[in-house]
Write a protein that binds this DNA or RNA. Sequence first.
DNA 1: GACCAATTGAACTAGTTCGTACATTTAGCA
DNA 2: TGCTAAATGTACGAACTAGTTCAATTGGTC
Lengths: 224, 224
Amino acid sequence: MEEMAPAAPRRAGSGKKAASWTQDPEGVRRNILAIARAEFVENGLSGARVDEIAAKTSTSKRMIYYYFGDKEGLYRAVLEEMYARIRNFERSLDLAALPPREAIATLAGFTFDYHADNPDFVRLVMVENIHHARHLENSAEIGELNLSAIDMIREVYERGLREGVFRAGLDPIDIHLTISALSFYNVSNRASILQVFGHDMGAPGARERRRASIIDTVLRMLAP
Amino acid sequence: MEEMAPAAPRRAGSGKKAASWTQDPEGVRRNILAIARAEFVENGLSGARVDEIAAKTSTSKRMIYYYFGDKEGLYRAVLEEMYARIRNFERSLDLAALPPREAIATLAGFTFDYHADNPDFVRLVMVENIHHARHLENSAEIGELNLSAIDMIREVYERGLREGVFRAGLDPIDIHLTISALSFYNVSNRASILQVFGHDMGAPGARERRRASIIDTVLRMLAP
DNA sequence: GACCAATTGAACTAGTTCGTACATTTAGCA
DNA sequence: TGCTAAATGTACGAACTAGTTCAATTGGTC
């Protein structure tokens, strides 16, 4: 779903000695980030190889260290870019315009789709959790999107309460966790579920059925 | 929650040259497996270091290769032991003796507790999914526990249908996925949720509330 | 057009990591 | 008791890996 950021036409010829190149710092940065993301997502932080990332880049290993300091710096940059992206996704939703039940159904459906369509995001969060989220910890600007997601749910939930379509006593974060867990697991554990149960949660048919089931489950959770 | 399998008293003195030792193949095996599990769970497959595992063992690196062939063989052994364990857990449940709704509530509660009490299991499954479950694939004897879990749910579900306490049209595997997802996520994503939302799903109070909420959600999913 | 800071390239290195070769000890059995 | 196979210890090496050194090129600015 993402372009590879081909870093502008560089070194048109081969890698000869006296070859010349045009400067394009932003392009180089984006190119490195895109490749690095793919590698970290596929092999994890310790499994990814800097030399491998460098080789797949249209630039050299030297540039990785020049722009990102070290391997962890590069990983952190990938992580931050990924979270910035999901923040955008969340901002794109306008639940306030919908009736409570439809708002929750929309949120659940969109969340499910976002996870299913962005396995990279899911896998990176898995990797980060294996590392006890200590890179997320050192990364500023993560705390911003905190309340936005929860507050959005709280607003809809309280509106639903006033209208009598939701039951009282629920915690907005509990609603968020339920939606996230059901959406996340369908991607994160796809491989092991396939091996153990022979059921492919990612197959088109199964995915759609699961999507409907999850929306239904969340609505039932909130029903009076 | 697990003993360290101290591999029988070996080399009572120090590691001197002429020291003697008593043979204990099984003890050595178990000792290596226990240490290896901790390392793989903590650092993943690529992050774990064979030398580090060997150092923490009461035996030497030579033994690891003697018994398990290579790093992947050791990892596979750890994985198989872990799955054998959960199979035992599932067999310990006797849902047939309970009324349908209580049976499901019990299953959900037990599943939640098993995950919460065995983060090692959860983390190892995460690691395995990062690797696309390809080690699970090459490991025989995994397919056995397939139907047991699903069949157990199917039996209870159909009983509930006949008694009119469950609604029709559900897939047993869908029920299983819901219970697993909600239980798994609470452990697997604890670190990132704490960082992003400042909410600790593992804290005693939060854990109990979440447990009750999940059981309730599953029952509502099945209600007519 | 000359000068300096920002960029980039290629080779190199110090330390790590998996795995092995070789020697030795133990346990059980003829 | 002596012999053999299983089990264990020690030391080492080849390959890999993150990060660096040194030098060169570019773009903009005076």
